[in-house]
Design a protein around this nucleic acid. Structure first.
Lengths: 253, 253
DNA sequence: TAGTGGTCTAGACCACGAG
DNA sequence: TCGTGGTCTAGACCACTAA
């Protein structure tokens, strides 16, 4: 079968940059990923063995292994001892990444819109205090936004931030995603813990999302931490289930 | 601050087994993980640097790095260049893994129950055929189960399998999780693509899950592949949102 | 300046799967 | 039996961070 042949588009790897800041394993894995996405390497195709690839590219085997491992973790390749490495069959979906809804929408070529519904300083209630790791009653920044794509409302986003972010302006929130604003301040989000569930639309949510009163909503609760482990954001989001869903690729260990 | 001290409970690593089949990096990472879970190494604590750990344990630095990386990927540790490695602050949640609902419930010390609602051979409809990668109309195995925990209904599970699994018996389905049955047949699931959403309860779902008619349900669609990339299972599941939610830990790249 | 993690090399031996 | 990926070693140099 043609799809079981060994594929290795060596021309993709002729100009690796050993001097720049981009790691070699990343250069290899990203080009390999692009080749798989574009069908240059078809689904089911076998790759050469790791030692041969390393020799061809003039790299060491650990470097090649790391490049391949990146794509295994993404669910694009499968390795089997004694057999070799194969491109996974079946369509490829983008895995869930640590991005904001705003960026998700932009990346899928839709025009995101934001309406700021609330932007104020409030005392932390019980769940908020626990999420952010502050005392109950501590002042925190509360933001409530309505997010739409191509003019259709998609989500109601409620976020709580530590008081040090009180200088974020409503105008910034109107124009950009929250994570984008935080990154511009030099804040990097490293880890997020998310909980995805469902419930009925409550209060003004039905109106804001243009769904029936009491209709089903997809919900996500999230706590985001910076690289020192401090909680930076506690969020509770509601999504219109006909406009949004979460996709993940899970790889067995 | 005490939580910024360097912690290294060396006694945990005195009896590493270099002869058995368990990789050294796994022995190190699993003991480290247990120590963090048990609070032996508190949240916010710093670890020694990689070279020193390697010297202490008589292992090479790449082996230690791999052990640490495992826990970074799980969201338990954070590494910063020029700084060191720290235990993440905040509570720890179990990340989503490639397990069946049955195993999830068992692991959380509840008694899962299964009622087989349907178990028959049917022709593949359009979405099923696409999911399993077979022609429309091909015979496939259809299973519909009601899953409960401690006597309370939690989910309605609809699964489609290739016809080669037609010899699975209803009794097996009653007693065990589907993935458990597949593993016992030597079938290993390597990758799954999941889509999580929400919708209203339809048909008999409200009755089966003991929720209001038209009430919100959490849904998951899943296609599971074996290590050769062949689709083994297409499933569509509905969960009672007050009984079940999906938790994930997302780590920035 | 000193210390940390990030990357990379060039080997080695082993376990698994197929023929 | 042979080829494959899985693991492990003992070094090396670099980039980033803090003092």
């Amino acid at each position: 079968m043609a799809s079981n042949e060994i594929y290795w588009p060596e021309e993709l790897f002729t100009d690796l940059d050993r001097t720049g800041p981009v790691p070699l394993y990343f250069q290899v894995s990203s080009r390999l990923e692009a080749a798989i996405h574009d069908g240059v390497i078809p689904a089911g195709a076998r790759l050469e063995n790791e030692i041969a690839i390393a020799a061809r590219l003039g790299l060491s085997r650990p470097t090649i292994r790391r490049a391949i491992q990146e794509l295994v973790d993404k669910g694009l390749l499968v390795r089997r001892r004694g057999i070799g490495t194969q491109v996974v069959q079946g369509q490829v979906t983008r895995p869930v990444e640590l991005t904001s809804l705003y960026e998700d929408l932009r990346n899928s070529h839709h025009e995101p819109g934001t309406r700021v519904l609330a932007h104020e300083i409030v005392p932390a209630t019980d769940p908020v205090a626990e999420g952010l790791g502050v005392a109950v009653g501590t002042d925190v920044v509360f933001i409530r936004r309505q997010r739409s794509t191509d003019g259709v409302p998609v989500a109601v986003l409620e976020n709580y931030l530590p008081i040090e972010f009180s200088d974020i302006t409503t105008e910034q929130l109107q124009d950009r995603g929250l994570y984008q604003i935080l990154r511009a301040r030099g804040v990097t989000i490293q880890i997020a813990k998310q909980k995805i569930g469902a419930r009925r639309a409550q209060g003004d949510e039905a109106e804001l999302l243009d769904v029936e009163r009491g209709g089903p909503l997809l919900t996500m609760e999230r706590i985001a931490f910076d690289n020192s482990g401090r909680a930076l954001e506690y969020g509770h989001h509601c999504y219109r289930p006909d406009m949004y869903s979460f996709e993940t690729t899970v790889v067995a260990k």
